[in-house]
């Protein structure tokens, strides 16, 4: 079933068309990667879906409801979770309190003035932390954690509103190879268990090819290819944006042959 429908989406910054009329669909239970070289418009697209940026035109529909023009906190209420390129957590709260905060907000308790928050949604928060493998660190301040662990906490917070769609902006940036695979394997597992969809941007191709069900490729704000790993790998346009035309190499070879 189609969860997210993006149609003719575009965004201009001054005269620059950062995203130029892209279309794609995202289905339930799917791990969809958004890839492309620097400046392709990945993060812009991403922030438009999350509401951090307002689209200049086009539409983004989540189960038939329009997201364009909504604020991030309203999009969160529609069961969209997200993580940021540089992990954003609450540094002065403990790991547990971070997830509790996300749950409190999800349940509309963020303005409650008198009851102690200590025990509220504690078990739910611990359960979420267990899902991302962070329950042992529950009482530690978030500021003390290794970066990979902060990303896991952020993931747990993203899951607090029981998302149908999870947005992950470069989930493995700044992580070592092992942490990277752990996190993506975890994400894959969560997608299957929770039947949610994940849209993620990524620079490291090993991660993308290993875990994404499908991928879409952006270059200079346009969508140039869409398909599975095999298809994308052999797509001439994709090879061109990532590796150049290859003509220089062929040209040199030809010249050498002439000389011989």
């Amino acid at each position: 079933m189609t969860l997210l429908q993006v149609r003719d989406l575009n965004k201009s910054f001054g005269g620059v068309r950062a995203v130029d009329g892209i279309n794609f669909d995202l289905h339930e239970g799917e791990l969809l990667a958004l890839i492309g070289p620097n400046g392709a418009g990945k993060s812009t697209t991403f922030n438009m879906v999350g509401g951090q940026l307002k689209a200049s035109g086009g539409s983004i529909q989540l189960l038939g409801q329009e997201l364009v023009g909504r604020r991030p906190r309203d999009i969160c209420r529609m069961q969209v979770g997200r993580t940021f390129q540089i992990a954003e957590t609450f540094a002065s709260l403990t790991v547990l309190e971070n997830v509790q905060m996300a749950l409190l907000s999800h349940h509309g308790k963020g303005f409650s003035l008198f009851r102690s928050a200590r025990k509220m949604y504690r078990d739910e928060a611990l359960a979420l932390l267990a899902q991302v493998g962070m329950e042992r660190h529950a009482e530690r301040p978030c500021s003390e954690l290794a970066y990979g662990d902060v990303k896991r906490v952020e993931l747990a917070m993203g899951l607090a509103n029981d998302p149908k769609l999870l947005l992950m902006d470069e989930p493995t940036a700044g992580m070592g190879p092992e942490e990277r695979n752990d996190l993506m394997a975890l994400t894959k597992r969560l997608v299957v268990e929770r039947k949610m969809a994940v849209l993620f941007t990524e620079h490291s191709m090993d991660v993308v090819f290993a875990y994404a069900d499908r991928m879409i490729v952006l270059a200079r704000g346009r969508l140039i290819a869409e398909g599975d790993a095999q298809y994308i790998r052999n797509h001439p346009k994709v090879q061109q944006v990532y590796f150049g035309t290859g003509k220089t190499f062929e040209h040199e070879m030809a010249q050498q042959q002439v000389q011989v």
Binding site: Q52, S92, G110, S112
Partner: peptide
Amino acid sequence: FAPFGYSLRAARDSALRADAIGI
């Protein structure tokens, strides 16, 4: 120590994250 206090410190620590979880 109530949820509002958490929200307040959360908003100070990261407005971006607070917004993204619906605060």
